[in-house]
């Protein structure tokens, strides 16, 4: 099966929910396990929150674009912002590293994305926004809650 979608929304935290609902609905035809759905939705939540909080520094005047493709049961999802970008990508990937401890950011965003998805690419440079591309094979669990097929 080949399918694709794209969604553009304002950089406000209310839209984190929107992004999760849309990606959850998009992968539904693959009959994923509940654990796979939660993994994908959590990872999208991290990527979109990063765009809003870090990319746009919490300012609501930016826009975030999420696009996704399903091809042969592999989901590829991209989250793009035009915000300030990441100056040190390697540092940003480190567990517990955050530039915003005052907001109680745990610094676990990229670690979570890397653990829950099969692959995470970050394309970013200061002043030119950030693109996060994540991939995950979705195993047919017929919507079940068991962990069969998960790693």
């Amino acid at each position: 099966m080949i399918n694709y979608m794209s969604l553009k929304f304002k950089s406000v935290s209310e839209n984190e929910f929107l992004a999760r609902v849309v990606i959850g609905a998009f992968i539904e035809p693959l009959k994923p396990t509940l654990m796979d759905v939660a993994d994908v939705k959590t990872s999208i939540s991290e990527a979109v929150t990063n765009a809003i909080i870090h990319g746009y520094d919490g300012m609501p005047d930016g826009s975030v674009e999420m696009s996704a493709v399903i091809e042969n049961n592999v989901l590829t999802v991209k989250v793009v912002d035009q915000g300030k970008g990441i100056s040190d990508i390697q540092k940003a990937r480190e567990p517990m590293f955050t530039t915003k401890p005052e907001l109680e950011r745990s610094g676990m965003g990229f670690t979570i994305m890397e653990s829950f998805m099969d692959g995470v690419d970050i394309i970013s440079s200061p002043g030119s926004g950030t693109t996060i591309v994540m991939k995950k094979s979705i195993h047919n669990g017929s919507g079940s809650n068991d962990e069969a097929g998960n790693d």
């Binding site: 959590t42 929150t49 745990s106 979570i112």
Partner: peptide, 14 residues
């Protein structure tokens, strides 16, 4: 709770 992301971890640790 149906889903939690790293913001939840931040809330708990805080």
């Amino acid at each position: 709770l149906e889903l939690m992301d790293s913001a939840g971890i931040g809330l708990l640790v805080g």
